[in-house]
């Protein structure tokens, strides 16, 4: 098991290397002055220009520059955001927990709901139930989450006034304890609903296909022949075996969400990583752009690692595989 973990972790390193090199090269491909490309569209005082040239070794060969940049990143130095007058790392560390909160709550609701719907569709004796959810999933999957978000804001926030239209909380909050939690939930509700419906329906689709596949396996026939009840078969055989593909897909999706649900955060002005990225792009704050992309790549890679481990725990065959 430990060897398995080690091998997967080793596999992640070249992946991260490629991403850092790719991003750095992209900065270099921007036509014009490299210092300006790093800093963004801001006036650069000569002293700062010199500091940047030295720090990023801009007069050295390209490979030296890449190596130097890598060394900086490894030490947690993602550069300085001229726009925000702060280090990029501090910006990321401030924003990341908010994105994690949004993604975790959304997936926390979407996974059980999606699984339930998927199992219900896969095992139901009523074709109507299956048809209803299959059609719903098909349509829900075609709705762009950001548009669903706009519709929710217009209906639930602006027309009915049930929820705030944007943000993560009020400017000044006087509530404490349970009331504070409730207040936060009101801000979370709409983005979580938009995100959760999309992901939940995706999970339901995968779960349904997986359940149908599992039900056709020989051991289910055996279990039936042994006289096991319907509920018992679903609980002890179908659930575990059908969850395998789900772990992979949901895990990857979660990893990508940690990298910033860019569109969703834009609709709800949710001040997470995605919004940081979009703002940085609009303001040409390139150092921040690169920093966020590298950070989200790390999130994806780490999540993939977690998925591999979960998979190994659920499926003993993988552990022993060379």
């Amino acid at each position: 098991m430990l060897r398995f973990i080690g091998r997967r972790a080793l596999y992640a390193i070249p992946l991260l290397l490629v991403i850092v090199v790719l991003m750095f090269s992209m900065l270099h491909l921007i036509p014009g002055d490299p210092v300006q490309a790093l800093v963004g569209d801001y006036p650069v005082p000569p002293a700062y220009r010199q500091a940047i040239e030295e720090k990023y070794r801009l007069n050295d060969p390209f490979l030296v520059q890449v190596g130097n940049y890598l060394a900086n990143v490894v030490q947690g130095d993602f550069g300085f955001s001229y726009q925000n007058q702060r280090t990029v790392l501090s910006l990321i560390l401030e924003r990341a927990p908010r994105t994690i909160l949004l993604a975790a709550v959304s997936f926390g609701l979407a996974i059980p709901l999606g699984m339930l719907i998927g199992i219900a569709c896969g095992t139901t004796r009523h074709p109507g139930v299956d048809k209803f959810w299959t059609t719903t999933a098909l349509i829900a999957y075609a709705i762009p989450t950001f548009w669903l978000g706009q519709l929710f804001v217009m209906f639930f926030a602006l027309k009915l006034g049930w929820f705030p239209t944007q943000g993560i909380g009020p400017m000044v909050s006087r509530t404490q304890g349970f009331a504070w939690v409730l207040e936060r939930i009101r801000y979370l509700a709409l983005p979580v609903m938009a995100f959760g419906i999309h992901e939940g329906m995706r999970i339901a689709r995968i779960m349904r296909a997986s359940v149908i596949d599992t039900l056709s396996q020989g051991y289910i026939v055996t279990a039936r022949a042994k006289g096991l009840g319907r509920g018992q078969i679903i609980r002890s055989h179908v659930l575990r075996n059908s969850s395998l593909p789900l772990v992979t897909i949901a895990g990857y999706a979660f990893g990508h969400a940690l990298g910033g649900a860019v569109l969703l955060e834009t609709v709800f002005t949710w001040p997470g990583l995605g919004l940081l990225l979009v703002d940085a792009i609009r303001l040409r704050d390139n150092m921040t752009v690169v920093g966020v992309v590298i950070f989200s790549a790390i999130a994806v890679v780490v999540m993939n690692l977690v998925v591999d481990l979960l998979y190994a725990m659920l499926d003993p065959r993988i552990r022993t595989m060379r």
Binding site: H256, V262, I281
Partner: peptide, 19 residues
């Protein structure tokens, strides 16, 4: 595989933004 694990949407976003 590499491209499948990359947060490609974000890369696309950057490419379009930068160029």
């Amino acid at each position: 595989e590499l491209f499948q694990t990359l947060p490609v949407i974000i890369l696309v976003l950057c490419a379009v933004a930068l160029f």
